[in-house]
Design a protein around this nucleic acid. Structure first.
Lengths: 252, 252
DNA sequence: AGCTGTGAAAGAATTCACAGCC
DNA sequence: GGCTGTGAATTCTTTCACAGCT
């Protein structure tokens, strides 16, 4: 299988756009659902609907992977599942550690989707000695002291940080030093990492704030029009709020 | 965003690009930290570093809000905190309901950052009668039967779905029917909603899959390409047998 | 001198629309 | 007839680089 494999015509360079990569899991999920219902083939239109995108985008995305469809027919579901899985690296097993077993960490450990597709929780790690040995989601929590050994023993390259914000950077540094090169960060902090390490963050409060922004827009279709220009006489001396309301601090 | 052909150019919103909106919470967090340290002003360079973006992007982002800086000096921290908060709609209070109080829902309910900035958990809702009345994060869980009343009584416009995938669409429909117009979805499902309703999703397994993609790429430009993958010597002109001859793999 | 604000250029992502194959 | 695959057009985002204010 070494030589001559090349499933994809090297015509399209290895560069799959990031936006496309981010959608592959979506397609994969939709395809898996079809597969479970034993649907043999699917059109770009149908699959796009199931994945919540439009069909032109889906076809373009797939075109970066290769020509895996059949004109006039559509895509073979099983085949595509395999191709996308392979592209995403899900044909191999990824051991993952979760650091920070509080409410969120425990919830993640219990999350089924975690183990489901290529990922395996190799260890749960927490700094609290009182947690050590306690079983969470069927595994004993281990102490941070052993972090380096755990990473190394299990060949972990993906770490999940679910600690409080204050501890996140330190944990991150240790993970990286121990060999982790991909981090999923749930702590509300910007992590700094060396080149070659990927960080993705999941941040509840950011998502809510984005929703609030749009929500506010909806609410004031007409009321907000008066605020067209930036603060009048911007050069104005220190913050003299647009409506005379001196902004103290944020509402708690 | 969301499903359906939301032809509405999300960028609409008074001309602030969506990509910028998504970064405002980041800036706000960095600014809040500076504010707590009583730092009076900050340059675009410093703030950008704290927020994990580059300074040109930050300045461009702020330019959509107005001219809130001072040339040669930088930005007044308090003033900017106020302006961004206002822009994001955080100067008002947003009651939020969480539906689905399992591991994740409970973790979300306990999450401090939730309540911190403009958001208030108005109710926890679960379909399990056994949960009803049980206190989680200091609030009694309420039953799904009362969902509509709860939404309406509290004027809730933002809902968080943390149910299993199978229940998500139904919960979503009820939330929307009851008046919710923004949804944060933690269930691994594509929700379909009418126009005018915003959906954002947070999906652990998608994030991990994206990391795996990049991880795989790092791991080997040459090695670990294919290992025992059952797929036949598939290629472009693969069979599309009407019989049942498929790769039939991808257990995951 | 220092730093913001912003046009203009460059780069990505999305959408169109249709040629090409089944 | 139906549907994929893809150049071309369009739209969105990022980056550059410098004019202009303090």
């Amino acid at each position: 299988m070494a030589t001559g494999r090349t499933h994809r015509p090297a015509t399209r360079s290895r560069g799959i756009p990031e936006a496309t990569v981010a959608r592959l899991p979506l397609y994969l999920r939709a395809l898996t659902a079809l597969s479970e219902r034993s649907v043999p083939t699917v059109s770009s239109e149908e699959l796009a609907a199931a994945a919540g995108v439009n069909s032109a985008k889906l076809r373009k995305d797939f075109s970066y992977l290769g020509s895996y469809g059949t004109r006039g027919v559509g895509y073979d579901v099983e085949y595509l599942v395999y191709q996308i899985s392979r592209e995403l690296g899900l044909t191999q097993d990824w051991p993952v550690v979760i650091v920070g077993i509080g409410n969120l960490g425990a919830a993640l450990a219990n999350y089924g989707g975690f183990a489901s597709r290529g990922f395996r929780v190799a260890a749960l790690i927490d700094a609290d000695p009182a947690m050590a040995g306690k079983p969470v989601a069927g595994m004993p929590v281990q102490h941070t002291d052993d972090l380096e050994r755990i990473i190394s023993d299990n060949g972990v390259s993906i770490g999940v940080i679910a600690t409080p914000a204050g501890a996140a950077q330190q944990v991150c540094d240790r993970l990286v030093a121990a060999g982790v090169t991909s981090i999923l960060n749930f702590a509300p902090t910007v992590l700094s990492v060396p080149d070659g390490v990927d960080v993705r963050k999941v941040d509840l409060s950011i998502e809510l704030q984005i929703l609030a922004f749009h929500e506010q827009r909806k609410a004031g279709e007409d009321a907000a029009t008066d605020d067209g220009a930036p603060a009048p006489a911007v050069a104005k001396d220190h913050r003299k709020g647009p409506d005379g309301d001196v902004p103290a601090v944020m509402p708690a």
